[in-house]
Design a protein around this nucleic acid. Structure first.
Lengths: 342, 342
DNA sequence: GTTTAGCACTCAATATGTCTGAGTGCTAAC
DNA sequence: GTTAGCACTCAGACATATTGAGTGCTAAAC
């Protein structure tokens, strides 16, 4: 399966030229970018062999070659340097990301926005995963007669809050009772254990103001559910319109990304490795068969955080984007570690 | 400027058929949908006159007619019933909107999502306006050694919160000092007065822990700024891809909507009236010249709230969508009034 | 005066045919 | 193993008919 050096050079040149121009690459036009001097016939022979081996394909008989998925795969795995980030890029990423606020959600959102802009692709990201985290604290801040702010803190440092409205007045006693219940039955439990049903039984245990208490506890369960949902955030979808090879099914692609369920499972599957590149059909979804994903994990305090990545056409500039995405996630990791530091 | 009854019927039929089919409407094909029996020649004469008057235009000599902006305008203003909502639609809207949570932001977001789905257009919305509102309360809930949750309540019932991180430990004294400053200098001031600069001078007035205090106050200003920003929320952009008459410049349109500045000013301009329909060039933006907006205001407790509306091609089903949007905003208004009730 | 039938005319869309050129595969010579 | 040369392929561009939905106009019918 090992390719000769010359084949490597030729494959690499074809991939790069195709990525640049979007046109099938012919033997003749390749000559000018090859480092050695060869005739077009020789190149043709090499290309024919590469095609036989499955690295290239031909849109039609009398056209040049384009890389197959396998070709891209080989290129990504063996022919490029995943850390070769040029200074200009680096600076650009830094300037975009570092001017961010200190709110963790904002940092991630902002970073994916920047990524979408820089790459001219759609960017996707997930907030830090909370799987397995427990509730470490719950605050109830009364605001109106029947409204309050609910703040929940989890063992992994994630903070979630929401406004909630009770079906009865939130008196000092209610607040106190709420704290009693919370510290007795909520603190220390894992997020997935807090369902509407368990809250219901919990509320039933109080003697008075059941309804008030229940509406508060229901809000807690919504909040817990919200926190563990870890939606995929999508930015710069409209960039996908700029890639004409996606044109035929941009709508399907955008809907697919928007729905988020499938992409969530992909992202989850990618969670193991630091960097994940999915090329075309490798992603196993019909809607993605003309697209590639570059997903990279960020770490918070050395632990798994979430994922940031890009979606573009298979004909994406891997050599430039892979290092960019990697670098971006490193930066985001650092920023988040800082932001969540006690 | 008044049209004869027959012209009204014909114009209405043309608009409706064009909306349905997307094809220029010819005199012959109109016959079948007209309530009276006429020859195609007569209809042709009427159509020629309507075209002379500017209500119709012709894509090319040998094609049928399509409504001009003026034609749509007449149709919207005089030929349809803005409240004629059929029961099925009504039920559909209700079922989508009512199952919403109690968080105001979520209600609006959810409603626009539903609207986008129902109409197959992009939906846009703004959170309740805060112009002129003042800060009525600020809560600082310490969470970690250096992190806290900041909650701000405004005179119009809007609640905003965020996590903030201080450049020093948030001790009990700091919290107390913060409350002193807040009640002395923040409560009662209007949101736009809370700038980073004023916070800076405010922080300078404290003797100790200037940096800690400043970082907290800076977060307050960010929060105030956030609250008064009133971004335009966009849902279902991908639906725009389904309208082939927008195809040529979907990207420009989507970017235009995403950027939000221009659309914000449009929405603001629309704020006066309960219902606003902008057809094609009426919106004064080149990117919108093939689109129409239907914007409707929701009220909270009888006061101005925000805007919810749809963006689609000029060839949009006004007769169906106008009542739908209107009804949706009424529902949302009720829900929000309920949710924000003390 | 309004309505209608009839007819010549227009023009986008479609189909058909031809040409061109970039690119290939193969063979035979270097 | 490399290269020159040549026959072959085929998408895309271009020119040219064909079709048909639709128009405007006129003159007759109501």
């Amino acid at each position: 399966m090992e390719l000769s050096d010359r084949k490597k050079i030729i494959l690499s040149a074809i991939v790069e030229q195709y990525i640049r121009t979007g046109e099938p690459v012919g033997s003749k036009s390749l000559l000018s970018v090859l480092p050695m001097s060869l005739s077009s016939a020789t190149v043709r022979n090499e290309m024919a062999e590469l095609a036989d081996m499955g690295y290239l394909e031909q849109p039609h008989t009398s056209a040049g070659r384009i890389p197959s998925n396998k070709g891209y795969r080989y290129y990504v795995d063996n022919l490029i340097d995943h850390s070769a980030l040029d200074e200009v890029q680096k600076k650009q990423i830094e300037s975009c990301v570092l001017e961010s606020s200190k709110d963790p959600d904002k940092i991630i959102e902002h970073a994916s926005e920047a990524l979408a802009d820089i790459t001219n692709c759609a960017a996707l990201s997930t907030a830090p995963t909370v799987t397995g985290s427990t509730v470490t604290r719950i605050e109830l801040v009364p605001i109106g007669r029947r409204t309050a702010m609910l703040v929940m803190l989890t063992s992994k440092g994630l903070i979630k809050s929401r406004v909630c409205r009770a079906d009865g007045d939130i008196t000092a006693e209610v607040v106190e009772k709420f704290y009693n219940i919370a510290s007795a039955s909520l603190i220390g439990t894992s997020l997935d254990e807090i369902s509407l049903a368990t809250m219901q039984t919990l509320a039933a245990s109080v003697s008075e103001e059941i309804f008030t208490m229940f509406s508060l506890l229901a809000a807690v369960s919504e909040l817990a559910h919200d926190a563990s949902r870890s939606d995929v955030i999508l930015e710069g979808q409209s960039n996908l319109l700029n890639h004409r090879e996606l044109e035929s099914n941009t709508y399907e692609l955008m809907e697919f990304l928007r729905k988020g369920d499938a992409i969530k499972s992909l992202v989850k599957a990618a969670d193991g490795k630091d960097l994940n590149v999915l090329i075309g059909k490798e992603a196993q979804y019909k809607q993605l068969e003309k697209s590639s994903l570059i997903l990279s994990k960020y770490n918070i305090n050395g632990n798994d955080g979430g994922i940031i990545g890009v979606v573009g056409p298979t004909r994406i500039d891997y050599a430039k984007l892979i290092p960019s995405v990697k670098y971006l996630t490193e930066l985001v990791g650092k920023l988040l570690t800082q932001a969540l530091e006690e």
